[in-house]
Design a protein around this nucleic acid. Structure first.
Lengths: 102, 102
DNA sequence: ACTATATTTCGCTAATTAGCTAAATACCGT
DNA sequence: ACGGTATTTAGCTAATTAGCGAAATATAGT
């Protein structure tokens, strides 16, 4: 789970994830959207893969990346939960500014 | 918004935020929960403050930190939104494995 | 003015990270 | 086997980060 947040900490990686929303893309397709060298992006892919945020699938000579939505959902809702942010249903515990002893 | 994700990328900082869920705590109170030197924690507080995830309030010689829930909510739901993760209401667009040209 | 307590700032080190170019690998077509 | 295209690995540099101890700052009480 830490890996997920580490992965999300970089803007380029977040943008990669956004691009993948529309469907799988090859490394090259993604690279076309960035002003970064391909090896740099390949590194980002590796981080995303290790966080299990994307899956890889080779198809001939090109490699397609596919968003792994459920992992992201789980991480985010896990954090929200641990923070007590109600997702709508879970009635907020809301400690509401309990002023300290003063 | 980038600052928020950067801030969330560190486990100690996430734990600090969790502690603050229950209500405001002084820097010293928080420090008692960690095995880190106070200057180190002070640095974490600074990061959280710059991300606007916590507010500071001096009370005599001690400084209380208070969770800024709304900023976190906004950042997370902003990300979920940009990722197309429905928060319940927004019907998922769900591109669902559109296999590429093949 | 002095002492004590709480917290931060300073100056440093070690580890991590994002970026690059060049070289290696993998697969396909001929 | 060779050449071409797609991507990754290797090896490097510069920037960032988390950690520390020591010193500085801020406030309160005497």
């Amino acid at each position: 789970m830490n890996r997920v947040f580490k992965a999300l900490a970089d803007p380029s990686r977040r943008r990669i994830l956004q691009l993948l929303r529309e469907g799988p893309l090859s490394a090259g397709d993604i690279a076309r959207h960035f002003d970064l060298a391909k090896p740099t992006l390949s590194g980002h892919f590796a981080v995303l893969r290790e966080a299990d945020l994307v899956d890889q699938e080779r198809q001939g000579t090109t490699i397609y990346y596919r968003l792994n939505l459920s992992v992201m959902e789980e991480a985010l809702s896990g954090l929200m939960d641990s923070m007590g942010i109600g997702q709508g249903e879970r009635a907020a515990h809301s400690p509401g500014l309990v002023k300290p002893g003063k």
